[in-house]
Computed example of a mutant assay.
Amino acid sequence: MASAVHNSNGASDRLYAAIGEFLARHRLSVDPAHYAFAHKVLSDERGPLAATVARLTDGGVRLSSRDIEELGGHAVAGTPAGAPPEPSSPPQLTVVADNKVQSLVARAQMQVEGFSDTVRAFHADTRGFGRDLRASRDAIRATGDSSAIDEVVRMASSMLDRVLSAEAKLSEVTQEADKLRHELEEARDDARRDPLTGLPNRRAFEDAFTTALTERANVSVAICDVDKFKSVNDRFGHVVGDRVLKAIAEALRSGCDEHLVARYGGEEFVVMFTGLAPADALSTLEGARAAVAAKRYRLRETDAPLGAVTFSAGLTAVEPGDTIGSALGRADRLLYAAKEDGRNCIHIDQ
């Protein structure tokens, strides 16, 4: 019995140590949501959640709080258990977006069915008109009866009314199709855009990266992470934290305006430089970093100083044979080195 207890304690100790290593590797704070998520992954290493995490982190990419929320970690980092989610929490936005897409798909299906009904009805009318017209023609040829001519006129007049009605219905369907196409384009754009900052989101960035690889463009990628962002949320609240994220997003967008800037998750942003040598990409990103560091933020409500806000970054050139995981893995390691080097700086491949 003592041996069994000892073995049980040993397994628990190993799991506890593995959870700590998992949180440290992904630089996640030790809060109940992150701990529970790590426990669920590591206690079933062959389960579907562990497989999904392995796929997302292939090449050294670390998990963000957004990833954990999307994978089922419903508590927002820094929010006490049982507290209501922030109004802009990603799971709620995802549900809204999904409902919108489902509604548009249902409308599209109804429109296609309505269009098909109109075409089928019009086809039946024209087939019947052709049959009756041939019968009247044959009657005129056989008997010379002038009343048959009156019947042809009547049928032609009736058919003209049906054609006009069908044209009106087709015009209505066309207008609805144009409106639906516009809404679908908006929904597709919403699905690829971060709702807080207005930047492209992770999905949009990964699609653009894949396209750049197929075009064999001269590409460098950077991961930028806001320094000590958790302390901003802890001291001033998530509303102020959101304003900081929007300010960083705008600084990166304006400083790297010819290149793709995206919010990758949480306080993490990514930049894809295309057509620039790595040294030029570094110079561009350094300008954005310096602009952010030079600015002094104040609380909107009280005008009290918020202090300096900075970000650190890792920048790497994309090499032949790279995947998005391997390239971002290198950039993430460089970002970690920049954090270790005192923050508010950029590390690049040597």
Rank of each mutant, 00 (worst) to 15 (best):
R243N: 07
R243Q: 14
R243F: 01
R243T: 03
R243D: 14
R243L: 06
R243A: 05
V244H: 11
V244R: 06
V244P: 10
V244G: 05
V244Q: 05
L245N: 10
L245W: 08
L245Y: 10
L245E: 08
L245T: 01
L245K: 06
K246F: 00
K246Y: 00
K246N: 05
K246S: 11
A247G: 12
A247Y: 13
A247K: 15
A247N: 15
I248E: 10
I248S: 02
I248A: 14
I248W: 02
I248D: 01
A249D: 05
A249T: 02
A249H: 11
A249P: 12
E250D: 12
E250L: 05
E250G: 01
E250A: 12
E250F: 02
E250W: 02
A251E: 13
A251Q: 13
A251S: 12
A251C: 15
L252W: 12
L252F: 01
L252C: 01
L252Q: 04
R253W: 03
R253I: 00
R253T: 02
S254Q: 14
S254A: 03
S254I: 01
G255F: 09
G255A: 02
G255P: 04
G255Q: 11
G255H: 08
D257N: 09
D257F: 08
D257M: 03
D257L: 01
D257Q: 07
E258S: 14
H259N: 09
L260A: 02
L260H: 10
L260M: 15
L260E: 11
V261C: 13
V261Y: 15
V261D: 07
V261H: 12
V261S: 06
V261A: 09
A262L: 12
A262D: 04
A262F: 09
R263K: 12
R263P: 10
R263D: 07
R263L: 04
R263C: 06
Y264H: 10
Y264N: 03
Y264P: 01
Y264M: 02
Y264C: 00
Y264T: 00
G265A: 06
G265Q: 09
G265R: 09
G265L: 06
G265K: 06
G266Q: 11
G266H: 13
G266V: 03
G266D: 11
G266M: 11
E267M: 01
E267C: 03
E267Y: 07
E267G: 04
E268C: 07
F269E: 04
V270Y: 13
V270R: 14
V270T: 15
V270C: 12
V271H: 09
V271L: 10
V271E: 06
V271R: 09
M272C: 09
M272K: 04
M272I: 01
M272S: 07
M272H: 04
